[in-house]
C-alpha cells in the first residue's frame, strides 16, 4: 500500500510540466526514502532525476518498495485538473495496475479522484557517479531560462565557459554570433538574484540548446538554478524543490569530431 499526501500539490504539477515533454514514459520508484524517478529522453542524450523525500510529505506511507510505470503526458493531464492550492494524495495498492490521484481543495469543499492505468516499462537505470565538478554556477533560474531562449534564436548549440572572469554563454548561427557573460554577483540584497561561481579549473563545454530550453521548463520550481560542469562529464542542471528534494537534468556534451 502506498499513500503519499502532499500539501503543496502544485509542486507535483510543476514537476510534471517540467519533464513531460522530455520523457514519455517512466517508472516512479517509491521507497522509505521518498518518491523518485530516473528517466532518459528517447535519444538517450538527456536524463531526468527527481527526488521528493518522504519527510517533505504530510503523510508518507510506503509499505514496500514500489515501481509504478506511468505515461508522463497522461499523468500531467490528470495533475492539471488539480487546483494550484489543492492538496494532492497519490495512492496505489501493491501489485495493482492503477494509481489514484486525489485532489482536495484547501477548505475541503471539493474532493476529486482520478485513477490512471499503470504500464510496464523496461527502464534503463544509469549509475551516476558522485563527481567533483570543475565549475559550479548558481544563478537566478529566470536568467538562465532567458539566456537559453535568447541564444536559441541565433544558434542550435551553446558553449558554456567558466573562467575566473565569469561564466560565458556563446552561440553561433547563420545570422551571426552571440556572447553573454555573467559575473559573480553576491552583493545583492536578495539571495535569489545572486550569481555565484565556484571554479576549480576553467572549463568549456558545448551543449544542444534544444535540451537546455526543455530543462528551463522547471524554472517555476526554484528561484535559483545550479549548473555543474566538468570537462569529461555531462552537465547537471539542478532545480531544488522547496525543502523536499530536487529535479536534476543531465545532458551529454557535444564533442568535436
Amino acid at each position: 500500500m502506498l499513500e503519499l499526501r502532499l500539501v503543496q500539490g502544485s509542486l507535483l504539477k510543476k514537476v510534471m510540466e517540467s519533464i513531460k515533454d522530455l520523457v514519455n514514459d517512466a517508472n516512479f520508484d517509491c521507497s522509505a526514502t521518498g518518491f523518485s524517478l530516473q528517466a532518459m529522453d528517447s535519444s538517450h542524450v538527456a536524463l531526468v532525476s527527481l527526488l521528493l523525500r518522504s519527510e517533505g510529505f504530510e503523510h508518507y506511507r510506503c509499505d514496500r518498495n514500489l515501481s509504478m510505470g506511468m505515461n508522463l503526458g497522461n499523468m500531467a493531464k490528470m495533475l492539471k485538473c488539480a487546483g494550484n492550492d489543492d492538496i494532492v494524495t497519490v495512492k496505489a495498492d501493491d501489485g495493482g495496475d492503477c494509481v489514484t490521484f486525489m485532489f482536495e481543495s484547501p477548505n475541503q469543499d471539493k474532493i476529486a479522484d482520478f485513477e490512471m492505468k499503470l504500464m510496464d516499462i523496461d527502464s534503463e537505470h544509469l549509475g551516476i557517479p558522485e563527481a567533483e565538478y570543475e565549475a559550479i554556477v548558481r544563478m537566478p533560474s529566470a536568467e538562465f531560462a532567458r539566456i537559453c531562449k535568447d541564444l536559441s534564436t541565433i544558434g542550435d548549440t551553446v558553449v558554456i565557459s567558466v573562467t575566473k572572469e565569469g561564466v560565458k554563454f556563446s552561440t553561433r548561427g547563420d545570422i551571426g554570433t552571440a556572447n553573454i557573460v555573467l559575473r559573480q554577483n553576491t552583493s545583492v540584497d536578495k539571495p535569489e538574484e545572486a550569481t555565484i561561481i565556484e571554479m576549480e579549473t576553467p572549463v568549456s563545454l558545448t551543449f544542444a540548446l534544444r535540451y537546455m530550453n526543455s530543462f528551463t521548463k522547471a524554472t517555476p520550481l526554484a528561484s535559483q538554478v545550479t549548473v555543474s560542469l566538468s570537462s569529461e562529464l555531462p552537465v547537471v542542471v539542478e532545480y531544488k524543490i522547496a525543502e523536499m528534494g530536487y529535479l536534476r537534468f543531465y545532458l551529454a556534451p557535444k564533442i568535436e569530431e
Binding site: L126, T206, Y250, K254, E256, E257
Partner: peptide, 14 residues
C-alpha cells in the same frame, strides 16, 4: 562540427 554523444558514454547501466 561538434558531435552529440549519448549519456551511456559517461554513465554505465546498472
Amino acid at each position: 562540427k561538434a558531435m552529440q554523444v549519448a549519456l551511456i558514454v559517461f554513465f554505465a547501466h546498472i
